[in-house]
Write a protein that binds this DNA or RNA. Structure first.
Lengths: 221, 221
DNA sequence: GCGCTTATGCCACTCAGTGGCATAACTGTG
DNA sequence: CACAGTTATGCCACTGAGTGGCATAAGCGC
């Protein structure tokens, strides 16, 4: 690994060893997104990716649990920040769903790494084209939701753990986020963090209306 | 394959060949659920399962797309019936979410095969214990939701396709179903189709309340 | 410089999943 | 009942993801 110039995030005051690990991880993510986008997720073998980064396959699996994981790192970073924020956010007498929404906004605000929005876009496009990536992403969001639920039950005075409402509130935020991600990806708007946040806000605002949305049969012709 | 006695569903007036295929498929599902439950999903190799059913691995993959698929057949049958029902159900002036809910109930009513509820229970427990199964199940539900969405847009006079409300309504039904599945599995109630339907009804009824659910900090101690 | 810890590389292995081709089983015709 | 056409199956070899074990090298504290 003769990586001379540190591309970004040359965060000094971390031990050399840790910096190297961070850089290797980031190089793996960037290269993976690039190769997968170029030739498709299934068109690139792990051996090829490892060769490109000059890392052994064994080492790859010490950084990521699966081939899918490396391509979903940007989204996972966001949700990890979300969970962290949720640990300290004040409920403040408003609906839990709003509190969750604010935690998600705060997490997005913390995604300051260069080109994060672009990487999320690539991740999303890859997932849309690759069933196994989509499945992994869904599963990760599901797990994150359960973790968020556990945090809520630990911190808030929610009465009964068999009341489905809290869980449904969490799932609604996740649904709104996925919805926002798709409209953000497809839409003509700006593909920035702020643009994504706006879509999330719209999707959350549409939640109540989705409960009562009514339609008739489409007239023939 | 010296399968002498047809276990169930000896649906005559189907050609012999088709009956055999149905039986092989059903035997694969039953044996898989049994073995996976006994020794864990990862504790059983495909070769072992194929040996037990006396079928070549090559043939297995002509029936199922993956090792996970064979264990999720019961749930997939339900959602397929749901999509079929949605093709002809009348919107009838009430919220789309209610129409979706009724389609799901109708689909459950059609799951008359012997022991269906029991198989769903095994599937759910396996998925809860096996990340890759959980991921596959989530992905399948996601795909089903998109298919349902396409049907809705085709049949109903929903104006704008970029309005997130329809999609969110579908996702809410899916969330409610998953929620119901968990409480049904964990709860003390009867593990029958009717019991599951009741849980689904409760979860759907809880959807509006989840939007406004409020809570304060848990008092220390 | 010198040990101690920790990351990495290498090798062999298991197992899911696929493609190709030969063979067996079912189908409906005469 | 034989015959030809169709379709499911079996077998074999192969790719590629993921794992375990052990030797080695790189960073770290002294």
């Amino acid at each position: 690994m003769s990586n001379a110039l540190p591309p970004r995030d040359h965060d000094d005051r971390l031990p050399l060893r840790e910096r190297k690990k961070l850089r290797t991880r980031q190089t793996l993510v960037d290269t993976a997104l690039e190769l997968f986008t170029e030739r498709g997720f299934n068109g690139v073998t792990l051996d090829e990716l490892c060769d490109a980064v000059e890392v052994s396959k064994r080492t790859f699996f010490r950084y990521f649990a699966s081939k899918e994981d490396v391509a979903m790192a940007p989204t996972q970073d966001l949700w990890r920040a979300f969970l962290e924020d949720l640990e300290t956010r004040e409920p403040g007498g408003r609906p839990v769903l709003e509190m969750l929404q604010e935690a998600l906004f705060a997490a997005m605000d913390r995604m300051t790494a260069d080109g994060w929005a672009h990487r999320v876009l690539l991740t999303r496009q890859l997932a849309a084209a690759t069933p196994s990536m989509d499945a992994h992403g869904l599963h990760f969001c599901h797990d994150t939701g359960r973790a968020a639920l556990a945090t809520l039950y630990r911190r808030l005075d929610l009465a009964t753990p068999d009341d489905p409402r809290t869980r449904l509130a969490v799932d609604m935020l996740v649904a709104a986020f996925h919805c926002a991600l798709d409209t953000w990806t497809a839409g003509p708007g700006t593909l920035t963090r702020a643009g994504l946040a706006a879509h999330v806000r719209d999707a959350c605002a549409a939640l109540p209306g989705s409960l009562t949305l009514t339609a008739g049969l489409r007239p023939p012709g």
